[in-house]
Design a protein around this nucleic acid. Structure first.
Length: 633
RNA sequence: GGGCCCGUAGCGCAGUAUGGACAGCGCGGCAGCCUCCUAAGCUGUAGGUCGUGGGUUCAAAUCCCACCGGGCCCGCCA
């Protein structure tokens, strides 16, 4: 088991907290939590505590005097890397780092470790992350990509922090959306083969939308949908087998997009198999025994099995009067399976080896081997519109099994379209935003967006590298396009809606993925030209004068703090923002100083170390965000 | 009717979880910087009643209450 890896900056901050607490206690103040933050300006020090301000509240003493008092009782010998401590008039206790000593040690631990060692936050805990889960009747649109990018980044971050991660992709192969395209193929004679277009796009763009338009003019078609759904639920009928074949063809194309976006999975969970596994019947009978569901003998839900919400008293139907389970009810056995709370009815077969090299398994009820995909914690990445239903699942699980395992809904807001972008799809709207709709065919397709981005990246790349081989240009354009789309959809707080605007999403400058790649390539190009080694002696760092140099060292040494936040809040955007911050500082450093042309050898070698450390940290961020790296763009 | 989320510069966002030192960044505007490690970069400038009103506090974008605006959810659909 690897030890917890803590970088220098956090270590120093924690040491300051401890020593301030002890100093306060020696000075006669009882203190529990000590806050130590970075001051807003470098002239105010490297670390700072507002504790004197807080103490003045209780004691009614002048905070400045408390600051002086605290400084007096601090045992400076216990604080490595701290050069000086100064009380500030405003009531802060400010700390200055001994920069040359700090910088050389901080960069050494980054360079020596290459950040390859995991950060041991998870202690090997088994966690499942479910993401993507696109209905297998259409191609991915940008909303699905937000889901994928959040989920995939989360899985990468959790793996890096020593969680034992299993990535699940749920395939709803028995839902109405799939039934719709089957209705189109079987009852409307729409061809189930297409030339010159991905099959998933064909199904979504042409078949699904067409069938839904026809429902409006020919309502009797809905009975065909019901028929198909019944057949799928029965299983092993001609229609069920045909549906399975279509679903697999759609999924194959969807996975191409997912893999292209850098995602990979461990397991495909098929809804039909969950349906046919008998898990629901078992759980349903336990729910009946425990009184979690009851049979409604009167009222509007007469003849249904319902669950009552204690808070509101509202009834939620779980089993219809015809005996079939509703959507959320089907999710309950799956959720219980994820957490290993029910006997696993599945066998597992290898479905594919993914481009990442990772094996992708599929559940099976008929053949395969026994494997263990259960987890102590399950994370389901699904948009906020599902919050209510996800809450029901949590509630049922805790009533059934208690609270020793965690079912977490990682919600995120949807991606909608700007009015202008909606207009390009032929939608006129009064409001500022327009929601995408698969049924209506109003969405931005993911493959299309990647291609547009790639095209733009290609022309920019050719401008800068006119003599490069096509193969190289193609690879770099692809990486730039992927960096753009992944960063765009992950940088924002998940709680906030993304209003997608086509022209601005095609931008390759500013706060974008390509900016990160550009910064990375800049660092690589410097290191490529370096003809000597780096050096981590104090002398070189003591010659540094630029604030960007000080800032960059501190920021690089704070990498683990960003990772911890990302894990704590299950929010990959923390890493995206951190990556952007270090790039800003690096580019400032690049403008203000020179590395290979620096004449003073010691300073030059210290700067080489700084660039190298930057490259290592940014590379790790890009890995965690699933963004491909290029040494030159 | 009940519940959840969002509201910070013209536009898009960070900062809110742990209240604290002048509210930051990107795009767009204007003015600049490539005989020098990639100008997909950098600098300067203009631009803000932190939705509104109250409250708590020495101190509020941050905490509490109310209200306003926007989005979403509350189906024997999935």
């Amino acid at each position: 088991m690897p030890g917890t890896s803590i970088l220098k900056f956090k270590e120093i901050r924690e040491a300051c907290k401890r020593e301030i607490r002890e100093s306060a206690s020696r000075a006669g103040y009882a203190v529990e939590e000590v806050e130590v933050t970075e001051p807003p300006d470098i002239s105010l020090g490297d670390l700072s505590s507002p504790l004197p301000l807080r103490l003045s509240k209780k004691t009614k003493k002048d905070p400045y005097h408390i600051a002086i008092q605290l400084k007096g009782s601090i045992d400076a010998g216990k604080l490595n890397y701290i050069k000086s401590i100064e009380p500030h008039r405003n009531g802060y206790l400010n700390f200055w780092l001994d920069f040359p000593v700090f910088a050389s040690d901080a960069l050494r631990e980054i360079i020596d470790s290459k950040l390859e060692k995991v950060i041991n936050l998870g202690k090997g805990k088994r966690v499942s992350v479910e993401h993507t889960a696109v209905n297998p009747n259409k191609a991915l649109h940008i909303g699905h990509v937000r889901n994928l990018v959040i989920g995939d980044s989360l899985a990468r971050i959790l793996t890096y922090t020593s969680h034992d991660v299993r990535v699940l992709n749920y395939i709803d192969d028995s839902g109405a959306q799939v039934a719709d395209i089957i209705v189109g193929f079987i009852f409307l004679g729409i061809p189930d083969r297409v030339e010159g277009k991905k099959f998933d796009q064909y199904c979504g763009d042409e078949v699904y939308t067409r069938v839904n338009r026809m429902y409006e003019t020919r309502p009797e078609l809905k009975t065909k949908q019901t028929l198909v759904l019944k057949e799928i639920e029965k299983g092993d009928t001609e229609i069920a087998r045909y549906t399975s074949e279509i679903v697999r063809r759609v999924l194959a194309d969807q996975l191409k997009t997912c893999w292209r976006l850098g995602a990979s999975y461990d397991l495909l969970n098929w809804e039909t198999q969950i349906l046919h596994s008998g898990m629901w019947e078992k759980i349903f009978s336990i729910m009946k025994e425990k009184g979690i569901v009851k049979y409604a003998t009167e009222g509007e839900n007469k003849g249904c099995w319902v669950m009552t919400d204690e808070e509101t008293g509202a009834e939620k139907v779980l089993v219809r009067s015809d005996g079939t389970a509703v959507y959320v009810a089907k999710d309950i056995p799956y959720a219980a399976w994820k957490l290993g709370l029910v006997e696993d009815p599945f066998l597992y077969v290898e479905y594919a080896v993914q481009p990442s090299g990772r094996k992708l398994f599929s559940t099976s009820l008929t053949a395969g081997t026994k494997l263990d995909f259960s987890s102590e914690t399950s994370i389901t990445v699904i948009d906020v519109r599902q919050s209510y239903l996800q809450k029901i699942i949590v509630s049922v699980l805790s009533k059934l099994f208690g609270h020793d395992r965690k079912y977490i809904h990682r919600g995120y807001e949807v991606v909608s379209l700007s009015r202008e972008t909606a207009r390009t799809l032929g939608i006129e709207s009064e409001s500022q935003i327009v929601h995408m709709s698969g049924r209506k065919g109003t969405y931005i397709n993911a493959d299309m967006l990647i291609e547009k981005l790639k095209e733009k990246a290609r022309s920019e790349t050719l401008k800068r590298n006119p003599n490069e081989r096509e193969e190289w240009v193609d690879r770099v354009s692809e990486s730039i396009a992927l960096s753009a789309i992944r960063y765009e959809l992950v940088k924002q707080d998940p709680e906030k809606m993304i209003v997608f605007d086509l022209p601005s999403s095609l931008m390759l400058q500013g706060d974008t993925g390509p900016y990160l790649l550009y910064s990375y390539a800049r660092a690589c190009r410097i290191l490529e030209k370096v003809t000597e080694g780096y050096e981590l002696n104090h002398a070189g760092f003591s010659m540094m004068k630029e604030s960007s140099e000080f800032q960059l060292v501190k920021q690089l040494s704070s990498f683990d703090i960003a990772v911890e936040k990302a894990v704590e809040f299950l929010s990959p955007s923390e890493i995206a923002r951190y990556a952007h911050t270090i790039c800003d500082t690096f580019n400032l450093f690049y403008e203000k100083t020179t590395v290979i042309h620096e004449e003073k050898a010691e300073l030059r070698r210290a700067r080489i170390a700084l660039v190298l450390a930057f490259k290592i940290v940014l590379a790790k961020c890009l890995d965690l965000l699933g963004i491909p790296k290029e040494e030159r763009i």
